[in-house]
């Protein structure tokens, strides 16, 4: 053998990749424009900010955004998100045509046997029951009607935004996934107390670099969610700093996040690495 694969891999920096080794930074000037508060023009929604990369040998693009479609509500959905989001997003599930029970059973079996998804028996049964209840030819139309009717994640803009834009990684219960996505329970209010502005920059522009959260180390890339409006991002920050009992950990003096704070930070675009550099240790 000539070379160990690792030698060739050093350069990899990966969106949502737990433990990928760091490479040269992509600092650079930024020339993004500020969006008017609470109204992001559609043309800007999905476009990467224009900025110049550094002049070194690293050729990089920003962490790839998470745009995972919502799953229909129902018992077992959280189990699916928890067990079927590590190797791929749940878009792999929601993009499928409605499949009969036997096909879903075979797919779950394939995930376990050929890809090594270590899903405990009880959870696998829960996932299967959820899929059969909502994603078969007989059930799918009603399931999507319910999804369209129900304000996803409740009426609150923060909860709704969390459900669509954050839960695919940080999980519906905010506990994250060990080794991959940091927990927000406990960690989000701590950040709000000590690094309020960092939280705003984080959700707008993403982050890349090593952090400590909930007693674990993470070194990965989180995509920014700058395509969401100022209200949605302020709402989601209020949600993650207060949900799951986090409100008890939030200092009494902490004011709610306001859309204006998001608008101000949006006017000064950063790369994910710059967000990390400004975060501090």
């Amino acid at each position: 053998m000539a070379r160990r694969p690792e030698a060739l891999l050093l350069a990899l920096l990966l969106a949502g990749c737990p433990g990928s080794p760091p490479t040269g930074s992509s600092t650079g000037s930024s020339s993004g424009s500020s969006a008017p508060p609470s109204l992001v023009p559609p043309g800007a929604l999905a476009q990467p900010l224009s900025r110049l990369p550094d002049e070194g040998p690293v050729y990089a693009i920003d962490p790839l955004p998470a745009r995972t479609p919502p799953l229909v509500p129902g018992a077992g959905r959280d189990a699916l998100v928890a067990h079927c989001s590590t190797c791929h997003s749940t878009a792999y599930v929601s993009l499928q045509p409605p499949l009969p029970e036997a096909a879903w059973r075979a797919t779950l079996d394939k995930m376990q046997r050929t890809y090594g998804a270590g899903v405990p028996e009880a959870a696998a049964e829960e996932v299967l029951a959820y899929l059969v209840a909502h994603y078969t030819p007989e059930t799918i139309e009603a399931a999507y009607a319910a999804l369209a009717g129900a304000p996803a994640g409740g009426a609150d803009v923060g909860a709704r935004t969390y459900e669509a834009a954050c839960a695919p990684c940080h999980q519906p219960d905010g506990r994250g996934l060990p080794g991959a996505f940091p927990p927000l329970v406990g960690h989000a209010p701590a950040l709000a107390a000590a690094r309020r502005e960092h939280l705003v920059r984080l959700v707008l522009f993403g982050q890349q670099g090593p952090i400590q959260a909930g007693g674990q180390r993470f070194d990965a890339a989180m995509p920014g969610a700058g395509h969401l409006t100022d209200e949605e991002l302020a709402g989601v920050l209020n949600y993650v700093t207060r949900a799951w009992g986090n409100d008890a950990r939030l200092p009494a003096s902490a004011a709610p996040f306001a859309p204006e704070e998001v608008a101000r930070a949006r006017a000064r675009p950063l790369t994910p690495r710059e967000v990390h550099a400004q975060r501090g240790p």
């Binding site: 070379r3 060739l8 990899l12 949502g16 490479t23 690293v58 990089a60 693009i61 190797c87 890339a221």
Partner: peptide, 20 residues
């Protein structure tokens, strides 16, 4: 097929190995 796939490649370290 697989996540993660590269969003960054360092050409000072990327090498194509012809081996085996």
């Amino acid at each position: 097929h697989l996540d993660p796939h590269p969003t960054s490649v360092d050409l000072s370290r990327w090498r194509l190995a012809v081996e085996g």
